[in-house]
Design a protein around this nucleic acid. Structure first.
Lengths: 160, 160
DNA sequence: GACGGCTTGTTAAAATTTGAAGGAGTGCTA
DNA sequence: TAGCACTCCTTCAAATTTTAACAAGCCGTC
């Protein structure tokens, strides 16, 4: 099982996978423990709250969340039912629709944010020194950029 | 949305989340592109292949995979249907059962491993220098250890 | 040796996610 | 401006995951 990845990198990879899995699970649990938000709900609210007009095209939102289109449709539908967002047809392109943050959605985000951020700090950030933060940021920025590029490349062409 | 996390750490956090999401998605896609294995399938096979007797208690396996008990039950059931693993009742504790790797399962793992590891290298590892690997390993080892400890602590007590 | 409290893993039903297919609309090209 | 290839989002069915019970077995005490 060791072909092509030296044992140091293998250990790195495993530690990363496992810790990340645990972290995401933990954050999700914390988030549900106060409000009635999931991690996905929270991220949708954050992205919308930062967008101009507090609204985003479905496709754009799906891209940023790394969600499949149908998953986002479902996600937004449930949030709409709960009054956190609204759907509006996209001006200028009648195919599209945008998700729009509601006042209630914004309020919900404001209520959930402190607790969630505290959770992020507690479980992850407080334990990192500045050099580590710098390295992580550099690594994951680069990685994200590259994976985004790969995706754009392969969705256009038809091969590989 | 910036309460209690300075902007550098916030950026770090976001980069980490997004890149990880993309990476896991990409690896899953690659894995499915050759064999008929999911990321979860693959990890089950790896863990079993390394375990003494190539077998593990359901609970132990669930703990390592960060799966809920019922999720693991389902996971193992589908793998059993495909002939990758077997279930045996646990000697010495008639409540439990263990998942056991089959010859076919081991073979499947051996076929899938090179491609998967190449994928890990290509999408992640090849782009990291040694210092970065060292830092990531340190950070995620520590994080994993801590989260594991937290989990053990809170499952015993009943509060917070 | 038997009650009471735990732990193990499974099951059943509800919630979510995926993947294929479709309805609409856009936009280029002839 | 009709035709056609493509994009956007949704829908539907199937697969997966979660959640809440459960059935069994373990373990200590009495």
């Amino acid at each position: 099982m060791t072909e092509s990845l030296d044992s140091e990198r293998m250990a790195c990879w495993r530690a990363y996978i496992e810790a990340s899995q645990r972290l995401f699970t933990q954050l999700e649990d914390d988030l549900r423990a106060d409000g009635e938000l999931s991690f996905a709900d929270y991220h949708v609210l954050v992205l919308l709250s930062e967008a101009p007009g507090q609204r985003l095209r479905m496709g754009e939102l799906a891209g940023r969340l790394v969600f499949s289109p149908s998953r986002l449709t479902y996600q937004i539908s449930t949030m709409q039912r709960r009054g956190l967002v609204t759907r509006q047809s996209c001006p200028g392109d009648r195919r599209g629709s945008e998700a729009v943050l509601t006042a209630a959605g914004l309020l919900t985000l404001r209520e959930a944010a402190p607790g969630h951020l505290a959770s992020v700090r507690r479980h992850l950030m407080d334990d990192l020194d500045d050099a580590e933060v710098t390295t992580l940021t550099r690594v994951f920025d680069r990685l994200g950029r590259r994976l985004r590029a790969d995706r754009d490349a392969t969705s256009t062409h038809r091969d590989t």
